Simulated scan of single mutants.
Amino acid sequence: MTLDTVVEDIREQARARAEEIREEAEAEADEIIDKAEADADEIRADILADAESQIEQEREQRMSSAKLEAKQSRLEARRDVLQSVRADVEEEIATLEDDKREELTQALLDAAAAEVDDGAAVDVYGTADDQDLLESLLEEYDGFEYAGEYDCLGGVVVESNESRVRVKNTFDSILEEVWENNLREISDTLFEQ
């Protein structure tokens, strides 16, 4: 074996070893690339899942907000309608015909008179528009006197200083009581589903 042959043999072994190292490096590089691609796919899938989850969450929040806003709008509309109905009722009461107004005022005055002691000095207040009516009705009551104006739709406020009794029998107070006691029924009638 000559030196050239030995050198050639070493070169051949070195080439073979270099080829083997290169193939191992390529295999390792392919393995690293495959792992990196798998990791990237997993990260991409996680990001997409998170994005879809966030989109769904935001959609649900917006739907919930829209439903709440619609419900509030419905409630406001109902409240507006109820206030309008109440205003219409108050207008009807304020403009009662004379005979009906006198009949109702008499009934409220009778009920208030039953609450005060007989013979007591009693001050009676009412709306300014009813002053003549009240003064006429009070002629039938001993010790009762029209004492002035009270801001109301009609009816009477009766005060007895001696017995410290104050009875508020106004159309307003009766309407308030009836309204509060029947609000659910009124609402159900107006807004039947």
Rank of each mutant, 00 (worst) to 15 (best):
R17K: 12
K100P: 00
F191A: 12
N182A: 01
E97D: 15
E42H: 06
A51Q: 06
F191C: 06
D188Y: 07
Q13C: 06
T5C: 06
L175A: 13
V157E: 05
I55D: 05
D172C: 00
I32A: 14
D34E: 15
K67S: 11
Y150S: 03
R11H: 07
Y146C: 08
Q61F: 05
S84T: 13
A77P: 06
D151K: 00
D39V: 04
D117F: 12
R22C: 00
R44H: 11
L134Q: 12
T105N: 02
E91G: 05
A25Y: 00
A70M: 14
E180D: 15
D188E: 14
I186C: 01
R79L: 12
A16K: 15
V158L: 07
A25I: 02
E12V: 03
E145A: 15
V122Y: 01
E19M: 08
V124G: 08
N161R: 04
V158M: 04
A16N: 13
D41G: 05
E97N: 15
K35R: 08
I93S: 07
F171L: 04
D110T: 02
L48R: 10
L48V: 05
I93G: 05
S160M: 10
A112C: 00
D30A: 12
A77R: 06
A51R: 07
Q54C: 02
I186L: 11
A121L: 05
I33F: 14
G155F: 01
D172E: 04
V157I: 03
